[in-house]
Every structure is written in structure tokens, then in C-alpha cells.
Design a protein around this nucleic acid. Structure first.
Length: 385
DNA sequence: CCGCCTTTGAAGGTA
DNA sequence: TACCTTCAAAGGCGG
């Protein structure tokens, strides 16, 4: 990454995006917050209207079809705002994070987590966007101060940590120095603990054995349990929990954009009076593109540190661990429908097979010309497609 | 109650 | 190596 050149190719993504911004000279893209929001909202609403009124306008979609390859060029967006800027007072140094930078919970482990541990039962969600007002209590722990621009190579950062980590998971790094953690917290992690499966490392409530709850650790179906509490079903819920201790889920570390979203979501919601996350995320995506490299670099650096901390806390964890929990069910459902013996005609039609003569490999149903008895006796597997 | 929507980035898998 | 897929957060909404 350009902004993190120290590592000789850090593992930050969005290279293309950043280069594109460099070419576009985005430095002057400092837009007044409120005007930006109104513009975002107007764009979003108009796009939503367009979606409903105009059918499939190619290239203009912001909807589901507007995936990466089809997204409007950032330049177009910037130019749109440039036009808009004709009537808008520019901020002289309008970095959104110039005056205060809330930081990120992984970097502020002690206080926020102690606070969260004393949260009422209704606050079962891990609060990640915190202390967005004023000085962060742990801002001193941040590698760069609130008014300090991100330094590509923090002086206290161990050399090997600045370099591309890849799949390398440090096994005995003293992260207490890295994160300035107080004695008795993560710094107590012994090197040997790194090889425990995370299910053994965690307490019943997603508590790390160090006593520090981690935002990435989420008790499964926490929301449901919360609902049970709300509906006065606590005894039943508790009994169920005691019977079936569920393994806490270790979530993926958040990437730069996710960190940005967490920080800015509340602000956008307040400004736009929007609540729908899909719409909010569209706005945030645009704002993300409008950020300067320096501004984005802060989040890339936070995300990098988050991944490193995550690697140290859960050395055996892999993103693969959480794979397929939603989509696999969907696939299996679809496969079930494919192998549904009750609809051979549909099945054969779906695969473009001859209804009279073709075997259907996916569902293994026989063609109509073969006898029903043949199907029952299962004389052999049909040829696969 | 579950999944979709919507965004970007990271990581794992595949060709 | 390029490309594809999945997941991470969020909350309203529809089936």
C-alpha cells in the first residue's frame, strides 16, 4: 500500500482503489459534512426511485446488480461532487477525523470491556462503536494520537509486525507492548496458550481466559437469548443453556471499511434519519471512496492491527471456520430440491435433458421410457453428466 | 424466525 | 496468478 510502504507490500487491500484516488487528485475532495449527507441522501433516494421507475438502466444501477465490475467509476462520483461543490463552502482541512479519532475497541481493551462487562443484560450486543465523543479514554494506547496523522511505521511496532504477515501467526509475541495493555490482561497470554483451540480458550460467555471479552467472540444465538429474557422466559432459556453449552463463535476481524462503517453509521443515521442498513451502507460506501488516502490509511492500519491481534488471540482460527453456515444450508436446500424424486420432469428440463431418453445425473431419476420397476430395483447408477 | 439487502476488504479455494 | 466465494456489521423488511 502506498500509505504503508514500510512493509514492502502490506496486506492491505484496495490497492486499485487507492491508486485510482491518487490519479484523481482527491485531495481537494473535502466536502462539508451536511451537504455531503444531503447529497448522499438525494442521490440514494433518486437512485431508488430510478430503480423502481426505470427498468434496468445499464451502468446506473446502485442496486443488487451493481456489483464491483458494474459500479459507476469513482471518478464519476467525485466529479458529481465536484459539481456540487460549486455551491458549497469547502472545509479548509476537512478531514473527518482531524479533531478526534475514536479509535477501535481492539485497541482499547481495558476500559471499554470493563464497561461492557457491567452492561445491563439488555446490552447483549458487543458495543464496538464507542467513545465517539471527546477524547477516547484509551487514546493514549493508539499508535497515533487523535490529532496525529497515521505514521506508516509506528516506531514501537516490531519490525516483523510491520511486514506482511500473510498466514504467519506470531506465536509468542508480546502484544502487551504492542497494544500497551495493562498487566494482567492480554499480556498474560502465555506462548503455549496460542495452540489451544479457541473453544478451549474461551469461557462460557465468550470470555478470553485472560479475562478480556473480545468483540470477535459472540455467543451463538445471543439475540435469541436476549429475546427470551425480554419475554420473561429466562428460566427456560437458562435451563437450555445449561443443557447445551454452545460453542462461542469467533468472528472475522473487521476490515478497514467495516471499521469505518462502525464508526460512521450512527452519524449517518442521525444526519439522514435513515435506519435501513442497506441504504446507510451505500452512503458509507460513497463516503469511503471520497476519503483521502490519509483518512483511509487510518482504518487500514487499524484493520491491520486488528488482524494481528486476532491472530495472536486465536492462532488456530481460520476464516474458513465460519464458512458455509448460511450458504451451505442454502446449497443443501437447493440440492435437496435437485434430488427431489418427485419432480423428474422439472429436473430434466432444468438441465436441458431429454424427458424420454436422458438419465439425470444430479437427481438420478430415470427417463420416462424406462419402466417404473426399473427405477425401483435400482439396477445401477445412471451415468453422470 | 430466517434470509435478503448493501457496502468494501480479507482470506480461502479453485482453475 | 487471477478469479470466485464467503464472511464480517447493521437493521429494516418480507415471506
Amino acid at each position: 500500500m502506498p500509505q504503508l510502504s514500510s512493509g514492502g507490500g502490506d496486506d492491505m487491500g484496495a490497492n486499485d482503489e487507492m491508486i485510482a484516488f491518487k490519479d484523481e487528485g482527491e485531495q481537494e475532495e473535502k466536502i462539508q459534512e451536511n451537504a455531503f449527507t444531503e447529497r448522499d441522501l438525494a442521490d440514494l433516494k433518486s437512485s431508488l426511485v430510478n430503480e423502481s421507475e426505470i427498468s434496468q438502466s445499464p451502468g446506473a444501477a446502485v442496486g443488487p446488480v451493481a456489483r464491483r465490475g458494474q459500479q459507476p467509476e469513482p471518478r464519476c462520483y467525485v466529479e458529481k461532487h465536484r459539481e456540487h461543490l460549486n455551491g458549497v463552502t469547502k472545509q479548509q482541512d476537512g478531514g473527518m477525523y482531524k479533531t478526534s479519532y475514536p479509535g477501535y475497541p481492539f485497541l482499547m481493551l481495558p476500559d471499554p470491556y470493563l464497561q461492557s462487562s457491567s452492561m445491563p443484560p439488555s446490552s447483549n450486543k458487543v458495543s464496538v462503536v464507542q467513545q465517539s465523543h471527546g477524547m477516547h479514554p484509551l487514546s493514549s494506547l493508539l499508535p497515533y494520537g487523535p490529532n496525529e496523522h497515521f505514521s506508516p511505521s509506528p516506531p514501537h511496532l516490531p519490525t516483523d509486525m510491520s511486514q506482511k504477515t500473510g498466514v504467519h501467526r506470531p506465536q509468542s509475541q508480546d502484544i502487551s507492548g504492542f497494544y500497551s495493555l495493562p498487566p494482567g490482561s492480554v499480556g498474560q497470554i502465555s506462548p503455549s496458550m496460542g495452540w489451544f483451540p479457541h473453544s478451549l480458550m474461551l469461557g462460557p460467555s465468550g470470555m478470553h481466559p485472560t479475562g478480556i471479552p473480545h468483540p470477535a467472540i459472540v455467543p451463538p444465538s445471543a439475540k435469541q437469548e436476549h429475546d427470551h429474557y425480554d419475554r420473561g422466559m429466562k428460566p427456560q432459556g437458562e435451563a437450555k443453556r445449561e443443557k447445551e453449552p454452545k460453542k462461542p463463535v469467533i468472528k472475522k476481524p473487521l476490515n478497514a471499511f467495516m471499521l469505518y462503517m462502525k464508526e460512521m453509521r450512527a452519524k449517518v443515521i442521525a444526519e439522514c434519519t435513515l435506519k435501513e442498513s442497506a441504504a446507510i451502507n451505500q452512503i458509507l460506501g460513497r463516503r469511503w471512496h471520497a476519503l483521502t488516502r490519509d483518512e483511509q490509511a487510518k482504518y487500514y492500519e487499524l484493520a491491520r492491527k486488528e488482524r494481528q491481534l486476532h491472530m495472536q488471540l486465536y492462532p488456530s482460527w481460520s476464516a474458513r471456520d465460519n464458512y458455509g453456515k448460511k450458504k451451505r444450508r442454502k446449497r443443501e436446500k437447493q440440492q435437496d430440491s435437485n434430488t427431489d424424486p418427485g419432480s423428474p420432469k422439472k429436473c430434466r428440463a432444468r438441465f436441458g435433458l431429454n424427458q424420454q431418453t436422458d438419465w439425470c445425473g444430479p437427481c438420478r431419476c430415470v427417463p420416462e421410457t424406462l419402466s417404473y420397476n426399473l427405477q425401483l430395483t435400482k439396477i445401477g447408477n445412471p451415468p453422470k453428466h
